[in-house]
Design a protein around this nucleic acid. Structure first.
Lengths: 223, 223, 223, 223
DNA sequence: AATGAATGAGGGTTCATTCAT
DNA sequence: CATGAATGAACCCTCATTCAT
């Protein structure tokens, strides 16, 4: 077997993964059938099983590759960077540019985290944790010690929320360039939407003992 | 049929919806079977069809009720409020307290938006648009005209991202109270994580023409 | 639900089991598809799953019912019988008449013992052991203590072999009646084929160190 | 292609057949996949098809070789033997020693007779018939003409049943040596388990018109 | 209102087999 | 001789849904 053959197998696998990611992104992992993927790739149904053991493995490969590359590229770019704020800028830019260049895969990453089970889930979760901790570390250093107003965990997940939510609205081919998006979100996250505007009434907001059940007039009994 | 019967019917429907929402939240709409719901509610499989025409209607009712109540409650609370910042505070608090009190339903709202199709999808989308526009309006008024640094659309969706992402990590029964969460996120959104820290290098960040494909060494060809 | 309905369900289950047994007997459990059974019973493929959880359960029910009834009927008939030889006669007659009346099921019992797995296998195996031990006990009492020429285990399994092998040749609708078959085998087992004829040369038979491999001229290497 | 190559080919075929027989014996012909055999032999899936046209041919070769060698060896050993009883002794010893030396193949022979179809089935069936008739002939001569108590066909198949059943229980590596097994079964077949013990009540055994259906309380309706 | 029974459609996966290399 | 890749057919099983009762 020549190196060329090996490469052909890999290229086809990548093609399948790319197609699968697109369909997973469009109609969710669970409502995508192997027949859908077979149709989209022009690979026979049985043929797909040369490239994966199970449907779940396709999802795994997509997610694992995603995290792998994002992490890898991030670490490369953070080498020799010391300024915490610059680190954060790089982090956000890296995440978003990757997201924008691989919208389908990144949506699958954000949206189908729990569709993986067992070992596959554990493996991806591990990478996710590593990535999350890296973000938390960066944020921790951004902060000057005295102003601990905002909970670090909340801030981390808020940042991820801001970034990952973009699959719901952002179009990489539209007007707004990725670099602008990154700059906007960095600015927003660091400086806020309306600096200096937090009202003193904030703390006075009181929630009446209202019925918060979705269903009108019915008391919620949970568990 | 007496009013009493009607009420009983409604109560049972709500019970079914609540149960369904929980399962949808746990294992996604598409991997939930009507048998799962039948099992969880102790209503026979056929019996469920007295309370909904199709499985999709269950999802619709959950989402519609969710948006309906959030919107309704928000509008009530915004009456007689004029200060834009206070409006925003109320908006965030309303959204999050509702979310925390109805985690399952709100996760379903965030996560299964595209699982609805046709008219049902259009109907919920309408409410979502209304809600989104309301948020955009509030944000627009928060801003003093001169400082248009951050794109309004970006800001709106960033806010939603921050809030809706919580189903991935927030535990309403944990240490962090909803009111604290709301205050943190409000603070973060308005004032930012590290006021005054945005580095001048921001604009100088340059992305090399790197290969941003998920798959190592393979150029991306899309569509 | 009336008793009539219950009975109808049971009757249909029995009909399915009977049909399944016939097909299992004809073409083996593993090459019988649920579609085969669906076709034979005029029950839709999905409909079969109202009567069993899995294909394997059909096999289990057939085997379990088989052993259950054979054992049950045998125990009834052995009550108040003391003469060991009569006991053996009853045992053989019971086994063979049952076999002849339920050729398909009994073939499945003999032939598909290992097609069951896990708990189902264990359960049937338990009954089989019980039945086998009962046979061994009967044989043990038949023997007068002094003449221990024939190993008891060998005798037990030889008896089972004689009886269970009939699915390979016996036709219950043919000339030879079951009662004759039973009498023949009983006679054969107890008195032998040619009383008094065992030659003294028996022990002198010597096996040359021949090559016993199936494959001509190739020495067998096992394990 | 040299003779050496041919020999190598044959050796590999035998290795494959041996492996296949083992797996067929373990999990039945129909649940054995070509992939199973490929795995066990370390021959690629496609490579197997250099040694057989179809999966069924593997089964055929195993069974055909089995019968061929048993018959061949038997005929060799019967040359110059005249005493009918000695003939029978040789027959039994030959069968059992062969069985014990080739448990897997012989189990496949006994167990998968009907898994062959068409010409292949006919061919093996022919050899089986020849073998069976040889046995019947031997038995016929053992008998003194006057004592026709036991039906000859019944006796023949009873003998085969006793011998072939051993794959269900006999362990060639256990305590009981093959020679002992052969002697036991010969003794048992010729002299019976309890000579002189057949009770006069034999004929009086009467079967009540009992329900012999496997399924309790349901009358049997067959075909 | 409620449900047991039933089913067509489709799910993921494995099969024996072929063929280009 | 050997094999990686490929595939149509078939596997077991579950699905959402309907209908007679």
């Amino acid at each position: 077997m020549s190196a060329n053959d090996l490469s052909r197998y890999d290229q086809k696998l990548e093609f399948i993964l790319r197609s699968a990611a697109q369909i997973f992104a469009d109609k969710s992992y669970h409502s995508t059938s192997m027949r859908d993927i077979s149709r989209a790739t022009n690979v026979s149904l049985a043929g797909l099983y040369h490239y994966c053991k199970r449907k779940e493995e396709l999802l795994f490969l997509i997610q694992d590759n995603c995290f792998g590359r994002v992490l890898e590229r991030l670490e490369e770019r953070l080498v020799d960077v010391n300024d915490p704020v610059v680190k954060l800028q790089i982090f956000i830019e890296n995440h978003l540019s990757f997201f924008a260049a691989n919208m389908a895969e990144m949506k699958v990453l954000s949206h189908e985290a729990e569709s993986l089970q067992g070992d596959l889930h554990a493996h991806v979760s591990g990478k996710k944790d590593k990535y999350t901790k890296l973000a938390t570390n960066i944020l921790q250093n951004v902060h000057s010690p005295e102003d601990g107003k905002v909970n670090l965990t909340v801030a981390t997940y808020a940042l991820f929320g801001m970034m990952n939510w973009i699959y719901n609205w952002y179009d990489p081919k539209g007007q707004l360039k990725v670099s602008d998006l990154a700059q906007n979100l960095t600015q927003l996250f660091l400086e806020g939407f309306a600096p200096g505007s937090v009202n003193e009434t904030t703390n006075k907001l009181r929630r009446q003992p209202e019925n918060l059940s979705i269903w009108r007039g019915v008391e919620r009994s949970r568990g």
